[in-house]
C-alpha cells in the first residue's frame, strides 16, 4: 500500500463525511485572486467587445471541460480519452432539444449533462476491467466511434452538413449574442467550479484520490473502487455534456469535425500543463492555453513552432503544472 493512499484514507476517516467545511488555511492571496476574478467576470461585458466576450465564453466552456477531465484523470487517475465525444453528446442533445421541442436552455442543459453522464457511466462500467494504456485506447476508440456516429447519423445530427442550432431561449428571451449568452455561461461555469470543489473536498473526492494512488489500498480500506471509477466517469461526462450545452447557447452551428481527438488532446493538454490533480490547474490551464492559442492566431507564420516551444518549456520547467510552479515561486518569494 502506498503511504500517500494510506494518509489520504486515514484523513478521509477523520474528516466529516460528505460535507464541505470552511478551511482555515485559505490565504489572503487566494481570497484576493478570487475577488479579482469575480470582479473581472462581472464587469467584463460592460467594457469589452462582442469578440472578446465570444473568446471569454469559449474559454469558460473549456474551463468546464477541463474540470470534467480533471475529475476522471486528475482526481481518479483514469486515463480516459473520450472527452470530445461527451462534449459532442452535450452539444447535439442541447441543440436537438431546442430545435425540436423549443426547450428552455436550463432544461436542455440538464438533459445534455444527464445523457452524457449516463453514457459516461456505461463507458465507465465497460472500462472497469482496463487500466493505463488499454483504458486510454478503449476510450479513444469510443470517441472515434461516436464521431463517426455524429458524421453518419444524418437524420439526427445533420451528418456531414453539420447541425444548425436554434438560438437558446428562456421563456420569451432568445439568446442572440455573445453578450446575452455570457451571464448564462459564466454562472454555469461558477456552479460547476463550486461543484468540483465540493466533490473534491467530500468523501467521494477523497475516495477518487485513494483510487488514483492505489486501487489495492483503497479496496483494503473498504472503498468501493468500482463504484468510484464509474462515478468519476459519469461525473466527468456530465461536465462535458454541460459544457456542450453551454457552447450551444452562443454558437448556432456544430460540425462533427470539431468533435475529434484533437479536441480531447487540447483539453488534456490544458489539464496537464495547468497541473494534473489540481482544480486551479485545470481552470488556469484552460484560460492560459486558450488565450495563448488565440494570441498565436495573430502570428500565423510561427504559431505552431511557438506553441510547441511553450509546451516543451512548460514540461521541462514546470512538470507539476503551471500553478504548482507559480505557487512554489510565490512561496519562496514570501518566505524570503
Amino acid at each position: 500500500m502506498s503511504d500517500k493512499a494510506a494518509a489520504m484514507l486515514s484523513r478521509s476517516e477523520a474528516s466529516p463525511p460528505a460535507r464541505w467545511t470552511a478551511r482555515s488555511n485559505v490565504s489572503p492571496a487566494r481570497i484576493g485572486l478570487l475577488a479579482l476574478t469575480t470582479a473581472v467576470l462581472i464587469f467584463l461585458p460592460f467594457v469589452v467587445t462582442g469578440y472578446v466576450l465570444y473568446i471569454a465564453n469559449l474559454l469558460l466552456v473549456f474551463v468546464v471541460l477541463c474540470l470534467g477531465l480533471h475529475l476522471v484523470i486528475g482526481e481518479t487517475g483514469q486515463f480516459a480519452l473520450a472527452h470530445a465525444a461527451f462534449y459532442g453528446i452535450g452539444i447535439y442533445t442541447s441543440g436537438l432539444a431546442g430545435n425540436a421541442f423549443g426547450w428552455p436552455f436550463p432544461m436542455s442543459m440538464l438533459l445534455a449533462g444527464l445523457i452524457a453522464g449516463a453514457v459516461g457511466v456505461v463507458i465507465g462500467a465497460v472500462a472497469l476491467c482496463m487500466r493505463d494504456i488499454y483504458l486510454a485506447l478503449a476510450t479513444f476508440a469510443f470517441g472515434e466511434a461516436l464521431q463517426w456516429v455524429f458524421l453518419n447519423w444524418d437524420k439526427v445530427t445533420g451528418g456531414p452538413n453539420g447541425l444548425r442550432i436554434s438560438p437558446a431561449r428562456l421563456g420569451t428571451l432568445e439568446i442572440l449574442s455573445d453578450k446575452q449568452a455570457y451571464p448564462v455561461v459564466a454562472i454555469t461555469t461558477l456552479l460547476m467550479l463550486l461543484l468540483t470543489i465540493l466533490i473534491s473536498r467530500s468523501r467521494l473526492g477523497r475516495s477518487f484520490r485513494a483510487v488514483r494512488e492505489s486501487e489495492v489500498a483503497a479496496m483494503a480500506m473498504g472503498i468501493p473502487v468500482r463504484r468510484a471509477k464509474v462515478t468519476a466517469f459519469g461525473l466527468s461526462a456530465f461536465y462535458a455534456g454541460v459544457a456542450g450545452s453551454m457552447f450551444a447557447t452562443f454558437s448556432t452551428y456544430i460540425h462533427p469535425d470539431s468533435l475529434g481527438f484533437q479536441t480531447t488532446i487540447l483539453v488534456l493538454t490544458m489539464v496537464v500543463v495547468g497541473g494534473l490533480g489540481s482544480i486551479a490547474g485545470a481552470v488556469g490551464g484552460a484560460v492560459v492555453f486558450g488565450l495563448i492559442s488565440e494570441f498565436l492566431r495573430q502570428t500565423p507564420s510561427y504559431q505552431e513552432i511557438i506553441y510547441g516551444l511553450i509546451l516543451i518549456v512548460f514540461m521541462m520547467y514546470a512538470p507539476r503544472g503551471l500553478f504548482a510552479f507559480i505557487h512554489d515561486k510565490a512561496g519562496r518569494v514570501f518566505r524570503g
Binding site: 467587445t49 462582442g50 469578440y51 472578446v52 465570444y54 473568446i55 469559449l58 456531414p160 453539420g162 444548425r164 455573445d178 454558437s251 448556432t252 452551428y253 460540425h255 469535425d257 488565440e294 492566431r297
Partner: peptide, 30 residues
C-alpha cells in the same frame, strides 16, 4: 468565428472577404 467577430466588432471592418474552408465557414453564417 473568432476571426470574423474580431474583424467585425474590434477592427470595425466595412465588409468581409474571406473563407477558404467550407465546413468552418458555415459556422459564421448566422
Amino acid at each position: 468565428v473568432s476571426a470574423v467577430k474580431k474583424l467585425v466588432e474590434q477592427d470595425q471592418v466595412f465588409m468581409l472577404n474571406g473563407g477558404s474552408c467550407s465546413a468552418a465557414a458555415v459556422a459564421a453564417k448566422d
